[in-house]
Amino acid sequence: MSNPFFLLFISILSGLLLGKIQFKNFKLGASGTLFAGLFFGWLFPLFINSQKELINIQNTLNTFFNFSLILFVSSIGLIASRDIKKILKTHGFKFIILGFLITFSGFISTLLFTYFTNLNNLNLLGVFSGSMTSSPGLASALESIKEGSADIIYGYTVGYIPGVLAVIFSIYFIPIIFKININKEKESYKFESIDNSKDYNFNFISFSIVIILGILIGNLNLNLKFASLKLGNTGGILLSSLFLGSLGKIGNLSFEFNKNILKVFQNLGLVIFLSSIGLRSGYKVISNFNRESLYLMVISFVCAIFSILVGYIIGKYIFKLDWIILAGAITGGMTSTPGLGAALDSTKSELVTAGYGATYPFALLGMVIFNKLFSILTNL
C-alpha cells in the first residue's frame, strides 16, 4: 500500500474488471477505474504511518496524473486533427456557441445557489469550476480572489468528483433515455470521415515536438481585458496537436501518426488519468464527508447535469447535430477529459474527439469570463 505503482495498477485492474459488469445496456467501461481509484485512495492512507511518506506517494500520484494527461490529450488531439477541418467546415459556429452556452449554464445555475442557500460563496465559486471539471477555471477563480483561496479549493475538490460522474453517467444514459441508435449514426459517418487506413510510422521526434510546443503554449499568460488566461498543459497540448496534426508535414517532419498506436496511448493515458484522480481524491472525499460537503456535492452534480442537458437540447434539436459529434462537443464544453473517455468508450468512434477539440477552447475561455463575472456579481 505504500508503493504508488502497486496502487495505480491495482486500481486499473480492479476498475477495468468493474467496468466489464453490464446492467442491461449500461456498463462503466474504463470509467470503472475512477471508482476503484476512489476506494484505494481512501484505503491506502490508513496503512501509512509517516506523513512524509504519504506526501511522497501523493507527489508520485500527481506525476502519474500529469503524465497521463499528456498522453491522453496529445493522442486525442492528433486523432481529431484528421477530421476537425471537415467538422468545422460542416457545422461552422455551432461549436463556438455550444462552448460558451454550456459554461454559461453552469455559471448561472451555480450563481442561483448563492441566492437560495446560506453556503459560503467562495465554496460555490470553487464548485462552479469543479462541476465543469476545469482546472484552468480554478486557476482563474484563484487569480480573481485575493483572500479565501482555501475555500475555493475546497469547493473545487468537493465538486470535482460529482462533476466527473455527471458527465460520465450522462454520456452513457442519454443514448438510452433518448433511444439514440449509435450504430446507425456511425454508419452515416462511415463514408464522410477522412480515410485513416494509411499505415503511418510513429515518429517520436515529431511527437516530442507536439508535447514541447503544447507545454510552451500552455504556460503563456494571455492578458485579456477582463482577466489573464493560461491554458495549462491540457489546453496547450490540445491546441498544438490539433494544429500540427492538421498540417500533416513541416519539411521532413511528419505529424501524421499511426492511429492504432495513438489509440494505445489514448487508452493508457485514460486509465492512468482516471485511476490517479481517484487515488488523489479518495481519502479527502470519503473521510471528510459531512452535511456541508454533501450539499456542495449535490449542487455540483445538479449544475453539471443542467449544463449537459442544455448542451444536448440545443445541440440535438436546434443545431441538429448527431450524437457522436454532440457527445464530443458536450464533453468539450464541460472541459471534461474523463467525459471524453466515456464518450470514446460508449460510441466506439474517434469522431467524438473532433467535437471535443472544436468546443474545448471556447469553453475554456468561457470559464475564465464566467469565473470573473461570478466574483463580481457576488461581491467577492
Rank of each mutant, 00 (worst) to 15 (best):
G15I: 00
G15L: 01
L16E: 14
L17E: 03
L17H: 04
L17A: 14
L17R: 04
L18P: 03
L18E: 05
L18R: 04
G19R: 02
G19Q: 09
K20T: 09
K20G: 05
K20L: 05
I21D: 03
I21Q: 03
Q22A: 12
Q22F: 05
F23Y: 11
K24V: 05
N25L: 11
K27S: 15
L28S: 04
L28G: 04
G29C: 11
A30D: 06
A30R: 15
A30K: 12
L34H: 10
F35E: 01
F35Y: 15
A36L: 07
G37A: 12
L38I: 12
F39G: 09
W42I: 01
L43R: 03
P45Q: 09
I48M: 04
Q51R: 07
Q51F: 10
K52P: 00
E53W: 03
L54R: 08
I55V: 10
I55L: 10
I55T: 09
N56K: 13
I57M: 07
N59R: 09
T60N: 13
T60V: 15
L61I: 13
N62W: 10
N62Y: 07
N62F: 12
T63I: 07
T63Q: 04
F64W: 04
F65P: 07
F65Q: 12
F65Y: 15
N66L: 07
N66C: 02
F67Q: 10
L69F: 14
L69P: 06
L69W: 14
I70Y: 04
L71Y: 01
L71N: 00
L71C: 06
L71H: 01
F72I: 05
F72E: 04
V73T: 11
V73K: 12
S74H: 04
S75R: 07
S75A: 15
I76F: 14
G77D: 03
L78Q: 00
L78V: 00
L78N: 03
L78T: 01
I79T: 12
I79V: 12
S81N: 11
S81C: 09
S81V: 08
S81T: 10
R82L: 11
R82G: 09
I84M: 06
K86C: 01
L88F: 15
T90N: 15
H91G: 07
H91M: 06
H91T: 09
G92D: 13
G92E: 10
G92P: 03
F93E: 07
F93Q: 08
F93K: 13
F93N: 13
K94E: 08
I96E: 01
I97P: 09
T103M: 00
T103P: 00
T103W: 01
F104S: 05
F104R: 00
F107P: 02
F107L: 04
F107Q: 04
I108F: 11
I108M: 06
T110S: 09
L112H: 00
L112N: 01
